[in-house]
């Protein structure tokens, strides 16, 4: 029986998107530890539906849905990421060295996604678990309808931050353009700051000196509450 290699390299110039995903999935199944994706060229759907442990290194930009609908994976993007990187990630770890576009880690359910640069609109939308760290700024509607998990934003946040969130926690170091409906700022306990600091340190990131902690105020949890102004804007 042929010995299983620990590493392998795939060149996106040489394989189709369909084959690439199959090769990664099969490699992970066979126990290959690491796969290097050369020339990703910001193509879409690179590394989708991978459910066995593997470390994926993207040597450049990735397009939409990289590392999405996956479990147990770890990945590094040496470049920027397109829409919805890590979408519905079950567990694992994704690090983007550059910026990410919109919908980063949408509906993520577990694991950690780290964007060292900034991230666009709808970052962490519908978050259902896990930790999302953004080194820079985040755009409009970040954390919309967030359900669980936590989001750590080192830069500024756009409008409608945490709008309609059900639960979970958002930490923002910079300015908040506008808090969303049903979100409110509460005091940050020292031990939570310490936890953020050490989590970030693990990714070679220095935590800003302070964070604002944003949680759900429960105002939208009961339709029979007569918050007319709020209902008018949210329902």
């Amino acid at each position: 029986m042929e010995a299983v290699k620990a590493h392998m390299t795939i060149d996106c110039n040489e394989v189709s998107q369909k084959d690439l995903n199959k090769i990664i999935a099969d490699s992970a199944k066979q126990g290959i530890k690491e796969v290097l994706i050369k020339n990703p060229q910001a193509k879409h759907n690179l590394g989708v539906g991978i459910t066995d442990p593997i470390h994926i290194v993207y040597e450049g930009d990735v397009g939409y849905y990289a590392c999405s609908l996956s479990d147990h994976i770890s990945a590094v993007v040496h470049g920027t990421a397109g829409w919805a990187i890590g979408e519905n990630l079950m567990n694992g770890e994704i690090v983007v060295e550059g910026n990410a576009a919109s919908s980063t880690a949408a509906s993520m359910r577990g694991g950690t996604v780290v964007v060292k640069g900034s991230s666009g609109a709808r970052t962490g939308i519908g978050l259902k678990g896990g930790t999302l760290i953004v080194g820079g700024n985040v755009g409009y509607m970040t954390g919309f309808m967030m359900q669980k998990g936590r989001m750590i934003i080192c830069g500024n946040a756009g409008k409608a931050l945490g709008d309609s969130m059900y639960a979970g926690t958002i930490y923002v170091a910079g300015d908040i353009a506008e808090l969303g409906n049903g979100a409110e700022i509460v005091e940050l306990p020292a031990e939570e700051y310490e936890e953020i600091r050490s989590t970030m340190e693990g990714y070679g990131m220095k935590a800003p000196a302070s964070f604002k902690k944003i949680v759900c105020n429960g105002m939208l949890h009961n339709f029979n509450k007569k918050e007319f102004g709020v209902w008018k804007t949210v329902l």
């Binding site: 910001a42 930009d61 397009g63 920027t80 397109g82 910026n99």
Partner: peptide, 19 residues
Amino acid sequence: SMAITNGFGKNLSVFEPDS
């Protein structure tokens, strides 16, 4: 960003402007 990569034939750092 695929279009930019393809156009210039190399990776370029991109960002998404906010809404």
